[in-house]
């Protein structure tokens, strides 16, 4: 593989990691709200979270363009508050990947939170643990398998995200051209078949590696629980 291909893989990894890094804490908070709180509009939040899963990715990408484009209200706010431009930048690709992966992060985390016996947190309280301490020592470790499952699933989704990304930030080599976009571009060119194949193999290896890593972590956690 040439330097250009390595650069594409590096960019894809950077985009996917940034997407999951930012989306994971948010997804945990939303999953916690959905699992533990009954509030008006809960069904609406649940539906909104799942929208990227059911909408055509192109539509999600267009929505992002309208909201986060250079002239979009959220885009201007980000620019003004943090000096952060997402339109046609790798950060925009990360944003698109994060939004598309979000429902895949929330679901397993919510399920693992729902499976935790609330009585254990009550027990932690009777032993003198303040609620944040009980959360860190009991709730979070017990939800960890769900967090890991969500993170891996989300990472794989972010790595392969295509429709929303190309609609939102276009296909700019070196900036927003991630693996899927590069493969697509190479397949359009009469001379790109060999390079496309190398990238296809690379994405298979990355996805397989992520799944194996998550299995390994889950198995270790499981062994710790059963010993």
């Amino acid at each position: 593989m040439g330097a250009a291909e390595w650069a594409i893989i590096g960019l894809s990894a950077k985009v996917a990691l940034a997407a999951i890094g930012v989306a994971l804490p948010l997804a945990f908070a939303v999953a916690w709200l959905l699992a533990r709180r009954r509030f008006p509009g809960r069904a609406l939040v649940q539906a909104l979270v799942n929208m990227p899963l059911v909408l055509p990715p192109v539509v999600t990408g267009y929505g992002l363009l309208v909201l986060f484009g250079a002239q979009g209200p959220l885009g201007r706010a980000l620019e003004a508050l943090f000096g952060l431009t997402v339109a046609f930048r790798w950060t925009g690709a990360a944003l698109a990947a994060g939004v598309m992966a979000f429902p895949l992060l929330v679901r397993p985390i919510r399920l693992s939170l729902e499976a935790i016996d609330r009585g254990l947190e009550e027990a932690a309280g009777t032993l003198g643990a303040r609620p944040p301490v009980a959360f860190l020592t009991v709730t979070l470790p017990l939800a960890l398998p769900g967090v890991i499952a969500g993170a891996v699933l989300g990472f794989a989704k972010a790595l392969g995200e295509f429709g929303a990304t190309i609609t939102f930030v276009s296909n700019i080599p070196g900036e927003t051209q991630t693996l899927s976009l590069a493969i697509y571009a190479l397949l359009q060119s009469p001379t790109g078949d060999a390079a496309a194949l190398r990238l296809i193999l690379a994405s298979v290896v990355l996805a397989l590696g992520a799944v194996l890593a998550s299995e390994w972590i889950a198995a270790r956690l499981g062994a710790r629980g059963a010993r």
């Binding site: 009585g119 254990l120 932690a124 032993l127 003198g128 643990a129 009980a134 020592t137 710790r224 629980g225």
Partner: peptide
């Protein structure tokens, strides 16, 4: 101190960590 009907031991900790939970997490 509360002893529950169903024990409610923390499944992800050893017996030793369970026993000393109030010490390291509860600051008792």
């Amino acid at each position: 101190g509360f002893v529950f009907q169903d024990g409610r031991l923390f499944p992800h900790m050893s017996v030793r960590r369970n026993l000393t939970y109030a010490r390291w997490a509860g600051r008792r």
